Amino acid sequence: MRISGSVALVTGANRGLGRHFTRELLERGAAKVYATARDPERIDLPGVERLRLDVTDPRSVEAAAVAAPDVNLLINNAGINTWTNLIDGDLNRIRLELETHLYGPLGMARAFAPVLAGNGGGAILNVLSAMSWFSYDGANAYGVGKAAGWSLTNGIRLELAAQGTLVTGLHLGLADTDMSADFEGDKIDPAVVARLALDGVEAGKLEVVADEWSAQVKASLAADPSAFYAIPAAG
């Protein structure tokens, strides 16, 4: 998969990591970039094809596949964090997390699989998270959504292999975007994340772990979970 000369579609391209993906694609010589958002008028990068898309709306997803029949690189970036827990959180907000992080990328993969096949196979990049691998009290719905997205990525990779489509998962901790603006601590430059992710796609990698924090979280999965979670004793 070569970025130069490719035709890419980026979901959630109006801000944050999606905007950096779009810019990086243009700088690497992509022939065309479909920059999508629920409100495409908010996309301010020149040189892109703006396209209205709501990944939680199946009709919008199908319309995007019709409008972009030349795509050979799909970047499922659109995301949301409702800061909702599972036991006492609003079920509608929990469902929105799953609609955005599971059913949205699934719908995009289903709609664009024949498009990618017709254009030589191409690639899908799913933006996941270090929270695919751990939970955080206060954002457990996000963790569930990203864990489901990780499993989705592994599953569609197997199903699309026969048509020559590469499926790559991207994991990262905090990026310096508006989604993490209220958090203190080290944050990775989103431009670096976009660059590493596209390097990984070009190298044919199945997974890109963008920062040391994410690598440490992944490594912890092989250990006793008590070493990662400090859970207070009841009573």
Rank of each mutant, 00 (worst) to 15 (best):
I124L: 06
I124E: 07
I124Q: 05
L125H: 09
L125P: 13
L125A: 12
N126Q: 12
V127L: 09
V127E: 13
L128Q: 14
L128I: 15
L128T: 15
L128W: 11
L128D: 15
A130W: 01
A130S: 10
A130N: 06
A130I: 04
M131Y: 04
M131F: 14
M131D: 03
S132Q: 08
S132A: 13
W133H: 15
F134G: 02
F134C: 07
S135W: 00
S135N: 05
S135Q: 03
S135A: 02
S135V: 01
S135R: 01
D137Y: 05
D137K: 05
D137P: 05
D137E: 12
D137C: 02
G138F: 04
G138I: 02
G138P: 10
G138A: 11
A139Q: 10
A139Y: 01
A139E: 09
A139V: 00
A139H: 03
N140W: 00
N140E: 01
N140Y: 04
A141D: 01
A141C: 01
A141R: 05
Y142A: 06
Y142H: 02
Y142K: 02
Y142M: 01
G143V: 10
G143C: 11
V144Q: 03
V144A: 14
V144S: 03
G145S: 13
G145N: 07
G145I: 07
K146L: 01
K146W: 04
A147T: 14
A148T: 11
A148I: 08
G149Y: 05
G149I: 14
G149P: 11
W150I: 05
W150D: 08
W150Y: 12
W150P: 03
W150M: 09
W150G: 07
W150V: 08
S151D: 13
S151C: 09
S151Q: 13
L152T: 12
L152C: 10
L152G: 10
L152I: 14
L152E: 04
T153P: 13
T153S: 12
N154E: 15
N154A: 15
